[in-house]
Amino acid sequence: MSVFASILSGTIIFAVPLILVALGGMFSERSGTINIALEGIMIIGALCACLFLSASNDMAWALKNPQLAVFVAILIAGASGLIFSLLLAFASINLKADQTIGGTALNMMAPALAIVVTWAIQGAGQTTINIPSWIRITQADFGLTQSATQGFFESLTFNSFYLTTPIAIILLIVSVIILYKTKFGLRLRSCGEHPQAADSVGINVYKTRYAGVAISGFLGGIGGLAFTVAVGSGFQSSVAGYGFLALAVMIFGNWKPLRIAGAALLFALFKVIGPMAGSIPFLPSFSKIKAAEYIYLMLPYIVTMIVLAFTSKKSRAPKAEGIPYDKSSR
């Protein structure tokens, strides 16, 4: 039973960055801007937040209120991601540049910048920013005493519980409300479908698209921190392709928030099963093949492709995505 619990908690913790970043991508694409720079945005968000966390290890107030420090780190991650994403917004909205080109440039820029900054701050050759261990939420934070034996509930909830998880859930709900229940959401969607029509009824397409990209930067930055926290071995100037995976999850989720959450959970589940395959009795262990771990490492990608093959006949991207809006065009 405890295996089951750790699979569940592992699934959730790896789904969190995917959900956040894919939601970010959704806001950007729903407003009409393809945001391929999510990977870079994640790296920048994680970089700034981890620098703060590692510095806050020496601050008295942070040690006293660890979760407050984590919350500040989350805000820093979001803000830095937002600022970085404005580079994409400027190129693709104001200057009407090709959106994949701008995004690719940012993706290339971010990891290099992260390494340069890490070297500059920590000294040459120091490629890892260590994050303090107190950021994890434990029983003590709720005034509970840690029981000696880890039961089902403990390993489900407190094994890998970080502030990013509840915040991701809140942001998911908020996203659904913003996208479907507010005036802003309707306007955002209209700019991604038919910006000319939106403009004709007085919506400022440029501003709305800026907002879409900025939201994606905010969520992407937090996603970067969530990823680093989930991996748990510090920040090494990389998010291991999660930004691109989030892009895939977003398409998989058909540009809809709840489906994105489902897609992220499915992907994370198969991602987590791999390393644990040995301890799950009914899974084959491929003992005759060397390095059989690769079979399980492939699993989440293959499952995603199979599901997509069956579901994507109906998949539909926002109609105007990728096309810079030009007021004078028909």
């Binding site: 691109f244 892009l247 895939a248 398409i251 490492l297 995603t304 997509l308 093959a309 994507s312 998949s315």
Partner: peptide
């Protein structure tokens, strides 16, 4: 199957590597 080539390419990058 109408699957976006970006997503398939990303997935098959990893599948290919493994």
């Amino acid at each position: 199957l109408n699957v976006n080539e970006v997503i398939t390419s990303i997935m098959f990058n990893w599948i290919g590597l493994f």
